[in-house]
Design a binder for these strands. Structure first.
Lengths: 123, 123, 123, 123
DNA sequence: GTGGTCTAGACCACG
DNA sequence: GTGGTCTAGACCACG
């Protein structure tokens, strides 16, 4: 896995796990890799993975079965979506402000959007 | 000035200056406050302001007249807009991906946009 | 290490590191001393070393592994040589102009060169 | 006059004056512009010109007639050449070291030299 | 006056 | 442990 040097690794691991869950690679109540396994797989320090797990646990995305491992929460998918949706809407103010500043019209954004949709369809 | 605790102060000062320029508060070839003046105004250490000035100079947003002070580059405004526009377009891929993931339609975005525009008009 | 009083220390540290790399004392992808270590070794403030590292990173001569340390870039040697070669050729115009002004002939330069080569051989 | 931002202006003014003398634009025992005149001409601070004059006086390149002005020393030309020649030879060690480091041969230098000579002849 | 460099040292995020 | 940021303050070159 290639990490973006500007974003903390534990955040990127968090996203990595959320993506696995959101795309149903890891199902509800399924056991996810142990801290050590994932650390080895991603070639990072176990402390770093542990930090991601702690954060996800606090968000109720995963839960811990003591002595056994971590599991995907039953409500993980909706939980993640809810969190991200909140964040997304919060970021919109800044996003629209920047659009205005750069003289980028809504029409252009729509255009870009349809282009990106077409492109990903054809892939 | 209130600084966001999560973003380095020197970055926020950079943004502060770019905003002054982009909104034509500071005009091309106009002298900007000295390192010490701005440090006092923003209540930060001169070293921190110096760091921002160095970065802006490297980006050709400001230039230095030795023994006199720093000045707004003639092309600063277009320079800044160009940089930000590039960044904006680069971020769109992620933005659209997130929209899709969260089942947010273009229609809804347009709706939010017109709301935000109306709101700022009425203020 | 004795620093030249007329040249900023952070520049001299930059040169120091480039020399280590160019003479293969520090190999590609090898870890270089931590900021603190080098600061202690050279008896300067860590901030000063940090400044050199930042500059070398910007030049892609070294790169940072987060939480671990700085490493020699794979292309550092060729990168450095390329930069210096450019500088060298650019300086030639001035160099030849000065030679002409001082009535120093190419023959004399060749003579001096062979002397300097012989001297270093016999050392 | 366009000043190189990386070299102190008083040094560049020093060179400017030395060039006038070395190319016999200003003759021995001829009065040179007053500090104020030159400052106005070059659009710099009179203090800066004064610093250049002081340095040139110390090098016996110019001399001061109190209340009247500065004059070119009778031996100025040879004085300047002598100083510069010393500097030139002192710089050769570094120059040859850099050549060797960059794998630039004496043959190539000769080649570049003859090119530069030809070019300046044809101008 | 201006910026540029540097020290001493603190505190923090990250791994 | 690692680097990254910041303060407080000194000293200096330059204009």
């Amino acid at each position: 896995m290639n990490f973006d040097q500007n974003i903390p690794i534990y955040i990127q691991i968090e996203d990595f796990i959320q993506n696995k869950i959101i795309h149903s690679v890891w199902a509800p109540n399924e056991r996810i890799p142990s801290v050590r396994e994932l650390a080895e797989l991603l070639e990072v320090n176990p402390n770093t993975v542990m930090r991601s797990y702690e954060r996800l646990e606090r968000q109720s995305v995963i839960y811990n079965q003591r002595g056994v491992g971590f599991y995907v929460s039953p409500m993980a998918q909706s939980q993640i979506k809810e969190n991200r949706t909140k964040k997304f809407y919060l970021s919109l103010t800044e996003f629209f402000k920047e659009m205005k500043l750069l003289d980028i019209s809504m029409e252009e954004l729509i255009q870009k959007h349809s282009e990106s949709t077409t492109k990903s369809k054809s892939q």
